[in-house]
Write a protein that binds this DNA or RNA. Sequence first.
RNA 1: GGGUUCAUAGUUCAGCUUGGAUAGAAUGACUGCCUGCGAAGCAGUUGGUCGAGGGUUCAAAUCCCUCUGGACCCGCCA
Length: 669
Amino acid sequence: MILEEVVDEIDRCLKEVLNKINVPDSKIDYNITEPPVPEFGDFSTNICFQLSKTLKKSPIQIAQDIVEEALQLCSNWNNRIWIIRATVEKPGFINFVLDKEALIAKFLQIADNKEALLTSRTNTQNNDYTILIEHTSVNPNKALHVGHLRNAIIGDCLYRIFKKTGKPVKVLNYIDDSGLQVADIIVGFKYAGLSSSEYYDSDSKESKKFDHYCGNDVYVKINEMYSNRPDLLERRTKVLRDLEDPLSNTSIFTQSIVRRVLTDQLRTTWNFKIHYDILNFESQIVQSNLWSDLFEALKENRIIRYETDGKNTGCWVYSSETEGDKVLVRSDATLTYFAKDIPYAAWKLGYLKNPFRFEYFATQWDSSELYATSLESVKSDDDAAIRIKRKSSYNNLSINFDKIVKVITIIDSRQERLQNLLVEILTKLGLQSSKYEYLGYEPVILSKNTLSMIGINLEKDKAVHMSGRKGIFIEADLALKILEEKSLSETKKRNPDLSEMQLLNISREIAISAIRYYFVKYDFGKVITFDVNESLSLEGDTAPYIQYAYARAKKIKDKLMETQPLSDDDPNMVGLTRSSFSQIEIDLVKHVCNYTIDLNQSSEKANPKLLAKYLFKLATLFNNFYEKSPILRESDPNLLKLRIMILKSCLIVFEHNMEIIGITPLDRM
RNA sequence: GGGUUCAUAGUUCAGCUUGGAUAGAAUGACUGCCUGCGAAGCAGUUGGUCGAGGGUUCAAAUCCCUCUGGACCCGCCA
């Protein structure tokens, strides 16, 4: 907030200078940034380099002219409140020095004001729109592995960023309950003699979670069996066909299996504090009229064509300029995977009439309600096989599809190509393609060490991709468990006075936070090599480091409250001069004041990584401050007041930012 | 073959969108600091011709081209 004003002030001065020397400011693309080292001041501009061509003078000459003459004549410069002086530095930079006393004085006025610290002045108040985020979308035939977790956590952080910056947002989770992978386990249960009842009670502590059982045993086993049991492959084809009829025995059985797996999957994601609003079931999208409506539109607009010769004879095909031909409808009239995505996307953007109602599905960890798509026609209350805990009526949730301004889908980068095609088609249908964004991230792969832990030994020192089919994966639940144990032993050492229950709670929160932080701090374009030992660390650039800094801050505040209730009199600068506060305090104040800028950027770029970086730096600066600026034994009352205000502001920003990343603030750890 | 993407310290990564001053963290190794607001911490040392070559520019890790190496995508699979 404050720093935005400072930059504005500099900008106003520079604009006036440009005006004086008759250069239109639109022609000059300069910036105002923080210089690399503190000796160069607090802000810096490259404007002289940009001017040197048009003015035909050397940058350093221009810099001197500006600083010594032009600036002195500016009305803005004479009325300035933040900048003490401007200096010229060798190649041609102009550096500005911030008035630290002014900064601190202003800071003291807002340091315990949440509004001022957390709200950007650029925030608009128009809430008449909705953003959709779709993430997780794991096939309901297996447990989530750490790769799925990356998807879910990125998506969830985005949701939290939008929510915290006041943007209306809903989270979707697409459930492919009629695809090949689900069919695989159904074949396992129905035709390969694998039991589906053995693990029925997923609440019992003894039994394995049903999603683990399906993914680990059934799915892997059935895929092994296919190679010498061709009859099972035929069965699968039949299962897939049966699934097209929602009232078939196979469908009803499948629905019950899918619900059980899905419930266990959600249990995992809820452990990681991930929020959803709607589950979209593919089977219902297939049953709805979305496809037929869209199919007509595609034909009418001549976007697809029926192939009468060549290798795609008998298929409906889309021809892309860049990607060649893509089959949408096979010669046996079934839809390809890609085809199913189009009406779905078009529906999300409000292009097709919404056929669904949203039915209560469950209450989540944050006590919000989760809904599922529902088609009135196929839903009957005596449908005993569909185990849904019916609450009351259908709709506490309403989405106005006319107000959707953006749909963001979080996908594995391997799907990016298909998504490109999808956008192409949407554009041809007349939809604004900028509304449909997909955010591709590189996958999570497993290190050699980790592979050998799950019984796979490689001769070469290489990491490999996870594969549900081959049983090569680390489940999200397992990663959490490993880290929980690791942090429990640490927590135990440090807190001998706490009960077992308290220790378990604390170590659990640490583990969840550590994993969430780990998956957001990397760039989307980076392949993450997951290693059970190295990835699950508790020191350095990790969530526990941040939590530790927070716990220190919180402890001081609690002690202050006990000993000397904070006085409410107006904090001011009386007795405080530049020499009384240190560089560390200024750096920390500047960083705190910078929060809204980073928050905005993170929101605009849809990138939570920036806030992870911000948070880590905040913790580092706070730890510095903690070491060098004692609070409880500070005797100078003015300095004490300043430090208390810094402490308070840090706590506010810590809590806000930690909630976005999903790091639990702990008083003790 | 066509396309996407990555390459920066022993290791894992920031920085590249929008070129700017001495390329930053973390971790590892080595060394200090707990009778002091919690040492999951702080301070210090070590460690990089930013994959190679060329081009544009006053200025290139950053932009453009070529090459090398890795990953991924390119089915009437999903």
